[in-house]
């Protein structure tokens, strides 16, 4: 059953990529840093260089955390939909195979938040 209804019924999704004025959504979460209570939602054009996210966007989002300055980007582990994944910093989101509403997580080995509490 796709829905309980008195007659044939199809819902219209509200979040199709065509509604975002040329952007697509990307969700990003920083593992073991629950000071940021949930993963974040960003609208990005698919032509954006992946490295620009890490270099220009994420510092504004995560820079408040004392661990941020200590992140060693050569050691960061990425997950896409929970599976290990390797980004190419000089390629665009589209070239990296990132689609609308994809979810990325990054792990920063050795950094476990305020007093090691994963905060």
């Amino acid at each position: 059953m796709q829905v309980a209804a008195v007659k044939e019924y199809a819902g219209t999704p509200r979040d199709g990529v065509e509604n975002f004025h040329g952007n697509q959504l990307l969700y990003i979460g920083w593992d073991d840093h629950l000071m940021f209570c949930a993963p974040l939602t960003f609208p990005f054009p698919p032509t954006l260089r992946f490295g620009d996210i890490v270099e220009k966007v994420l510092p504004g989002a995560y820079g408040y955390h004392p661990d941020w300055a200590r992140v060693d980007w050569s050691k960061v582990e990425w997950l896409k939909s929970g599976q290990p994944w390797t980004p190419h910093f000089n390629r665009t989101l589209a070239e990296n195979g990132l689609g609308h509403k994809d979810v990325l997580r990054f792990r920063t080995p050795g950094l476990t938040g305020i007093q090691g509490s994963c905060s």
């Binding site: 059953m1 796709q2 309980a4 209804a5 819902g11 219209t12 999704p13 509200r14």
Partner: peptide, 11 residues
């Protein structure tokens, strides 16, 4: 159980 309902969520 009812995807056609929840795809319409106003998030």
């Amino acid at each position: 159980n009812e995807p056609e309902k929840y795809v319409q969520a106003w998030l």
